[in-house]
């Protein structure tokens, strides 16, 4: 019973905050509601027994991605009332995208009912006496190692691409060079002179 209660609590908050993400007036509030939605979906993962995924969701999305997101949104100066002006104009496209997503979701989740033979591809349940961290590790790092590495390489290329595209050399920037500082000794900067009284240098 308590589990059911927890499920409805998490599910309701997730959906309510997801609605608030798109209806909140202030963009920062939107991001904060998005974080609340992430957090509650992590709660749903825990209820399903996928505690590793839940923690990774919090660490990666809430702890890192959403922070940077919030970071950017806080710095923006956008008039959101102005942005809403074209709402009706863009609504058909938005509705179409939403519809396509809905159909795809139904196809994925209800696929077994439409075509029974796809059932063999359904995810196998976690074997007994194995924590799901171990099960995931087995899957990713043992059975699908090369695909996983390939995915990593694709992400790396994307990251390097983004850096190359946005990096620019600015002239006149003075950087601290640690090696120069370490190499510099007293003889480079100080000169000891014996000065005769009343003569000056």
């Amino acid at each position: 019973m308590i589990q059911g209660l927890a499920f409805y609590l998490f599910a309701c908050i997730t959906i309510a905050s997801a609605v608030m993400v798109i209806s909140a007036r202030n963009p920062v509030h939107s991001v904060l509601f998005l974080i609340l939605a992430f957090f509650n979906s992590a709660g749903l993962f825990v209820l399903m027994g996928a505690e590793f995924l839940a923690m990774i969701l919090v660490v990666v999305y809430v702890g890192a991605v959403a922070v940077l997101f919030l970071f950017v949104v806080m710095m923006l100066d956008i008039n959101f009332v102005e942005l809403r002006q074209g709402f009706l104009q863009y609504m058909p496209i938005g509705a179409l995208v939403g519809l396509i997503l809905l159909v795809e979701l139904i196809a994925v989740l209800g696929g077994h009912h439409l075509a029974a033979e796809t059932g063999v591809h359904a995810a196998a349940p976690v074997p007994e006496q194995m924590t799901n961290t171990q099960a995931l590790g087995e899957l990713i790092y043992t059975h699908y190692l090369y695909l996983f590495q390939a995915a990593g390489v694709v992400l790396l290329v994307a990251m390097i691409g983004a850096i190359v595209l946005t990096h620019r050399k600015r002239p006149g920037v003075r950087k601290q060079r640690i090696s120069d500082q370490v190499r510099r000794g007293p003889e480079d900067s100080i000169e000891v002179r014996k000065i005769e009284p009343g003569r000056g240098i």
Partner: peptide, 11 residues
């Protein structure tokens, strides 16, 4: 991981 997640939320 739980502790790590909690500490990353502190921000």
């Amino acid at each position: 991981l739980y502790l790590f997640a909690i500490s990353s939320l502190g921000v």
